[in-house]
């Protein structure tokens, strides 16, 4: 069975420093796959390579069996790869609702000329976008915030907004970079439920970089552990918890 998204033998170095040393990763369709590991293990770099924000020094990236290594980010988005960011990238100056309508518009744009002549008042498509955007905000529990400016939200809610925005392009796979950072226990629980729902009901595959082990163990189908740019272990949550290498890496060399 071909994986939905695959990194094959990926290397990446920055100015002589190797961040990724031959990483292999297969994300199967319809699963929640977690990518964990200590800081500096190369997790965010791997996400960047998967969605094309950076190109690997060596190695390939496949989506549905097709080589997408040289495809730019925006084309990968059109194929169905969406993502959120560890350091927040919400559109400041736009409202929460507008953050999502921009994503919806990106999915099926009607161009500058129509926007110039019809504006918002005389374009029925614009109203359609707002209705659909509200649905995504409801799903993430942000509907009460929709008229606020995005940058005024607390960090946790900005993360949720990024997820809503990413969902708006109707992706096949969602790459999430530390979505639970900045959320409290209760909010993390809700996030976990939401992600599970997305996967089970909407059939969206999720690749998740996360430090909150409770969340990771509870919702993931598979886990890959990255350590110093190499895959240390891969398996189900249960297998990972028992893996001696992982325990050693997490508790330190001495033990």
């Amino acid at each position: 069975m071909t994986a939905l998204l695959e990194a094959r033998d990926v290397f990446k170095s920055f100015g002589g420093h190797e961040v990724l040393k031959g990483v292999n990763l297969k994300v199967q369709k319809g699963t929640i796959h977690a990518l964990i590991g200590p800081n500096g293990a190369g997790k965010t770099t791997l996400l960047n390579i998967l969605n094309g924000l950076e190109s690997p020094s060596r190695g390939k990236v496949y989506f549905n069996g097709n080589d997408i290594t040289n495809l730019p980010t925006e084309k990968r988005a059109k194929l169905g790869i969406a993502r959120t960011f560890q350091l927040l990238e919400v559109f400041s100056g736009l409202t929460v609702l507008e953050n999502v309508t921009v994503a919806l518009y990106a999915k099926s744009p009607w161009g500058m000329f129509k926007s110039l002549t019809l504006g918002k008042l005389f374009n029925s498509q614009e109203r359609g976008l707002e209705k659909r955007a509200e649905k995504f905000l409801e799903e993430l529990g942000l509907i009460h915030r929709s008229k606020e400016e995005a940058q005024n939200l607390p960090a946790g809610e900005q993360k949720l907004l990024e997820i809503a925005r990413a969902l708006a392009i109707e992706p096949e796979i969602l790459l999430l970079d530390e979505p639970a950072a900045g959320l409290n226990n209760r909010e993390t629980k809700v996030l976990g439920e939401t992600l599970k729902n997305l996967c089970e009901k909407n059939g969206i595959t999720i690749l998740l970089v996360e430090h909150d082990m409770d969340l990771v163990m509870k919702i993931s189908h598979r886990i890959t552990v990255l350590n110093f740019g190499e895959v240390l272990a891969e398996g189900t949550p249960l297998e990972i918890q028992k893996n001696p290498d992982v325990i050693k890496a997490y508790l330190g060399e001495e033990s």
Partner: peptide, 17 residues
């Protein structure tokens, strides 16, 4: 709004296609 978003985050816009 997309143009305004360009001002704020080009990277995020690209990831939206």
């Amino acid at each position: 709004k997309t143009l305004q978003a360009l001002h704020s985050s080009e990277i995020a816009l690209r990831t939206l296609g």
